[in-house]
Design a protein around this nucleic acid. Structure first.
Length: 194
DNA sequence: AAGAAGATCAAT
DNA sequence: TTGATCTTCTTG
């Protein structure tokens, strides 16, 4: 499994390198096909820019901690805390289901594999991740609710696309969203250019 | 005490 | 394109 060292680099590097890794949650697992990077300082789109509680989270937790946020009154979004020369977060935006598909279908109340984890709010439902996991670790060896696994066959770096982050109103234009080219489980098809 | 904004999703 | 739904933070 990935250890804390993976998350002590720049958030953008962490976000890019997570593409292709597997997120394992109990008997379920999915291949990460979409992420976004946020920087704790100097990024107006990051929670740390306008939420004191997010800044406190960064100071109180270690690299690899789960930052789980309740969005739009309806959905939990899961991020990994990055702490190094540049602190920040990686938002987990989409997975390609790999294992435990029936359980995901039941939690999502959907059949189509492509719709189970194709968005940050969907994947937390499919994997039963919620506010009770806020502060839990993705990288602790014992008693972890979830972790990252290096895949048997790594993705071709040339298949990773960088483009603009989704759903934000500030700091648009940075190519800090990463996705796997042509993958059916990516939430929003990347825009040309960028 | 009240209001606004927000890293979404599914149905129309 | 719109409605659902609620936490955090700011303002009065």
């Amino acid at each position: 499994m990935l250890d804390a060292g993976f998350f002590t680099r720049h958030p953008v590097d962490c976000a890019r390198d997570l593409i292709g890794m597997e997120l394992v949650r109990g008997r379920c697992a999915g291949r990460i096909v979409e992420t976004e990077a946020y920087a704790a300082v100097g990024d107006e789109a990051a929670h740390t820019h306008f939420r004191p509680s997010a800044r406190e989270f960064v100071t109180r937790h270690r690299a690899g901690a789960a930052y789980v946020y309740f969005n739009y009154g309806m959905y939990w979004l899961a991020h990994v805390l990055v702490k190094g020369e540049t602190d920040g977060f990686v938002l987990l935006r989409a997975l390609e289901p790999v294992r435990g598909v029936p359980a995901m279908q039941k939690r999502r109340n959907r059949e189509d594999i492509r719709h189970l984890c194709s968005g940050p709010g969907k994947l937390t439902i499919a994997l039963a991740i919620d506010g009770s996991h806020h502060g839990a670790s993705f990288v602790s060896a014992r008693r972890h609710p979830f972790h990252f696994r290096v895949p048997e066959s790594p993705v071709d770096p040339a298949a990773i696309v960088a483009d603009e982050r989704i759903g934000i109103s500030r700091a648009k234009g940075l190519p800090w969203r990463f996705s796997l080219r042509g993958n059916a489980c990516v939430s929003v098809r990347p825009r040309p250019s960028a």
